[in-house]
Nucleic acid binder design. Structure first.
Lengths: 344, 344
DNA sequence: TGTGCACATGGATACGGTTACATTGTGCCA
DNA sequence: TGGCACAATGTAACCGTATCCATGTGCACA
């Protein structure tokens, strides 16, 4: 039915092993034979059976991406497409395929990973999140399966991972506000158990300290990666006797809530309150006003993490932690003086 | 090294074929033997080699999703995560894996698909877009490979596909505005070569006709699925002697541009101009005001399309075109009377 | 008591490749 | 002219599983 290596061999008048060698570009095959065999392959429309190949080579040329379980997906929602495009670009370039898997709970996730790894279906994998004391990481290390983390592990220092320098990113964002002449700068934070949150908080505090600006407890609000979180934060943060005139916000979605909250309270942005946030999702340039945001290089994160896994597969030495550069994208929300638009 | 079916067999004192049958839950295996073998499998930590299994069964339990090439991804960007989650949910439930593939151009895409299909790597696939005279569809039909389309084929009537009833959706959206007492309703359209655009236009026109409302050329603007498109449309559409007081907008992102354009022109929404749009992406409830939008059931689209492919693989009869119900999500942007929020 | 049959299991082979090792042929040199 | 190195190719084993076919056992029944 389907044309196999043997059919090609027979028709070309050579042995199957010769055909196999032609496919693999083996050096000790004569140019003449190679040409002829390739011609026959073309003629018969031969395509190697990938399963047979995998079985004998113990290699699948497939990398898996493990999707976080629903509870952890909120932030990811907006990143996902670009992240995957980055991953796919790198993998395709290297002739690898991408397998996506996940589970509805932690137990299921581990089972899936076990099945894929022990079943020899994948050569490596990518984890899109970092959770503390993750059994999957423990398992992968034990199995010596190449993998990389997008983000940062709170448990192990030496887990191969690709991340941003979130301390520096927050430092830069805060300094941007300071450079605009801001003196009273608040911080709308995320879940403090996340490394990302902790790091950004650190950067924020450092920038304030270096500029001799006050760090006030009341100007810092902890929340979730949700619109509501930013919205509610405004009620508490702006009701103080001396509210901040600028805010660093942990994430664009949260910033959107902040915008909404401030608008309802009658503040103008950026004239009354200036805003800087993080992640630069597609959303952030669509708001009114557009939000100044730190671009974290989502595509790069995916691209680099894949590259890291591929290197590990090829036994190439890698640096365990790669940092993707960030970039502050300045938009209207953070600028002190703005050309006012007069409706016609 | 890795534990195989033979190792289990030896330790259990049975033949490899018996172990194989235990795994497959073969009826003619004694309860006693089954129990014992399973115990040994557990003890040795046996996991079946998926490649070997695939090789002999000619089945991979893998479905591929082909990502559109960059040029066609604009709309998809916001859908993607939910769509994939729908796909993954269905596949996981049925014990299938998801392979993602794509190419940077049409040629590459076809090569990838050929490699996967002819290489026996997948059992079926999902196409996330519809392009006219698509060589991939032609190829898949020739190979008799199960596949389904998300969207609608403009070339073939009988391609298995999952879609919305876009005529009805637009009809409903327009009628919602009519029910609000709107008389002058315009339409901000998308690329007319797309079936989706054509269908929505049809539904819009039909609703107007049935309500004896005027359909004016000047109230209809064609564009792209871009923010700018909606933004620019406002300049032309609202500069007419008698501009519309309500707009049906082809997509949420475009609607966002519309919002921006109207705001700059000094119109209030919904008091001066009411807005209804489509797709109900996460964005649409975050705008000011939140946009009334037709939810197209993104998750369902993915879920159902996967189901369709799985059915085809199992040789179950299917209906070639499945329609996912839509649902109008009413928000502030379309309501005539709105409780005004007074800033405190 | 011998025949037939259902049931539980084993042996052998096939799936489509790769690769270690064996074999053949050629040219070159002593 | 015989021997040898080396290039080019063939032979056969193996990757881990599924399954066809054969086999042995116990039991009902004629």
């Amino acid at each position: 039915m389907t044309v196999t290596i043997k059919d090609v061999a027979k028709k070309a008048g050579v042995s199957p092993s010769t055909v196999s060698r032609v496919i693999a570009d083996h050096p000790r095959i004569s140019a003449e034979t190679s040409r002829k065999v390739k011609e026959i392959m073309e003629e018969l429309g031969y395509h190697p059976n990938l399963m047979a190949k995998s079985l004998v080579s113990r290699t699948t040329r497939t990398i898996a991406v493990i999707l976080p379980k629903p509870a952890e997906e909120l932030l990811l929602n907006f990143f996902f497409y670009e992240l995957i495009r980055g991953v796919l670009a790198q993998l395709t370039r290297s002739g690898y395929d991408l397998l996506m898997a996940g589970g509805s709970n932690e137990q299921e996730e581990l089972e899936t990973v076990t099945r894929l790894v022990r079943g020899g279906r994948i050569d490596g994998l990518l984890l899109l999140y970092s959770r503390s004391s993750d059994p999957i990481i423990t398992f992968l290390r034990k199995e010596k399966m190449p993998f990389a983390l997008i983000g940062r592990s709170l448990d192990y220092e030496d887990v191969p991972s690709v991340d941003n320098d979130n301390v520096q990113a927050a430092y830069d964002a805060t300094n941007h506000l300071i450079a605009q002449g801001q003196k009273r700068i608040g911080f709308v934070s995320g879940p403090t158990k996340l490394a990302m949150t902790q790091d950004r908080m650190t950067g924020y505090a450092r920038a304030l300290a270096e500029a001799d600006l006050p760090f006030k407890e009341g100007w810092v609000v902890e929340g979730e990666f949700l619109l509501e979180s930013g919205y509610r934060a405004m009620a508490s943060i702006m009701s103080q006797p001396e509210p901040p005139t600028a805010l660093v916000v942990i994430d664009d979605v949260v910033a959107f809530g902040v915008l909404k909250g401030l608008a309802e309270l009658g503040y103008r942005i950026p004239q009354d309150v200036a805003i800087v946030s993080f992640n630069n999702i597609a959303l952030s340039e669509l708001t009114m006003p557009p939000i100044t945001s730190v671009d974290v290089g989502t595509y790069q994160l995916g691209y680099t993490a894949s590259q890291m896994v591929l290197r590990m597969i090829q036994q190439v030495e890698i640096t365990a932690r790669q940092i993707i550069p960030h970039r502050l994208v300045v938009r209207e929300s953070s600028l002190r003086t703005v050309a006012q638009h007069i409706p016609s």
